[in-house]
Design a protein around this nucleic acid. Sequence first.
RNA 1: GGAGAGUUGGCAGAGUGGUCGAUUGCGGCGGUCUUGAAAACCGUUGUACCGCGAGGUACCGGGGGUUCGAAUCCCUCACUCUCCGCCA
Length: 423
Amino acid sequence: MLEMTRIRAERNEIIEGLKKRNIDVTETIDAVLEKDQQWRAAKTSMESIASELNKIAKEIGDLFRQGKAAEAEAAKTKTSELKQEESSLKTQVDELEAAITELLYQIPNVPNALVKAGKNEEDNETVEEVGTRKPLHEGAVPHWELTKQYNLIDFELGVKVTGAGFPIYRGKGAKLQRALIQFFLDEAEKAGYEEFIVPHVVNEASAYGTGQLPDKEGQMYYIPEDDLYMIPTAEVPLTNIYRDVLLPDESFSIKLTGYTPCFRREAGSYGAHVRGLNRLHQFDKVEIVRIEHPTNTDKALTEMIDHVKGLLAKLGLHYRVLRLCGGDTGFASAMTYDFEVYSAAQEKWLEVSSCSRFDTFQANRLKLRFKTADKKNQLVHTLNGSALALPRIMAALMENHQTPEGIEIPECLHKYTGFKVIN
RNA sequence: GGAGAGUUGGCAGAGUGGUCGAUUGCGGCGGUCUUGAAAACCGUUGUACCGCGAGGUACCGGGGGUUCGAAUCCCUCACUCUCCGCCA
């Protein structure tokens, strides 16, 4: 959520910036500013009446103590009109506040200066492409064939037990999955991230804190009985650890990581896009989260990108890095880099990671602040990224490392899998 | 599932209708003393919003009510803890 003070001060810059998302928020912003004006006026009058009432109440107290009951009773009659006025102003103030919040929820984050204007994924910039396409052997197949052939993942069994989009990993498939999780966590730890094991369901306040609510409730599984939401990403519980926190000084740099399954209802998927591991209702992911001083955000994002690059390089995958255009950048994000690996057998790019900076957008809702040297409270910057999401990495590994003799496992995973090839 | 007790400032913990934004202790910050430190002593120390400012308003789990006046009384919701039951 954008800060009100910023909207007051930078109306034009915000409107201009958001045009890169292919939207025009002039109307919304001006409505916010108008209601803000009214709100402040109503609030000021309400408070002066409150002040008046407080004064009278004090006088009445004094009169009673002095035994002047008659005078006290007389003073009481003065208050009723003021009280009525106050309560009607309070209604106004409350309504305006609600209306402003409602409008603010509709305004996405302002894109970073580096972000290009654009409509959708076709306008994304390729920042870098690393590695080359390894030619596959004759008879190479997509991962959904390989998983069947080597008995690694059983999609039908998942349908039986739960439903579509809930695959069951078995044997070496299960072991490879676990190996990847351990590898990612160990690498994150080496990079200075503290590991957390967090709840897989969260309360409503947490879902608001990271911006899943309001609006995106349809994307989460919800447990009405207990009023809890199943997490769509570890970002939610990890970031909410720091909800309503005031950091005592400016010398912080918080790096968190955690593995969790992620649950997404993802309505409206279809066809080849959802084949095999491409799109699931439940998948595993290792997430990295950072809470940084605003002056450190550029550096932090670069470090996160380098970290993800390192993982992909060790896995021997050919990948590219995209800077998303305005229209494709998530609602809360100021700038997002996507990582995609090439799936030779499917002949397409698969998104395996997404690293974003949110600047103060999330922190504002989370009320996550730090004390500056001159004792002011200032919002922190938050960032997060996947390092990495498992299913498409599994898919890419199987497809790209397949040989007529079997699937070769990258060396960095050997100590976790205990095997070097799946055949 | 049954019964009970709670929720107050960074933490601990008082406060049952007015002088309470709130006793006190710890912690933090500043000072005295000291070569330095510790101890002791003195002082200071919440957040948000409105206002150019002086200043004002709100906040004692959330919401509502009673009252001239609520941390304190009433209603309601949420959460936490303890004991019993069940269970991995």
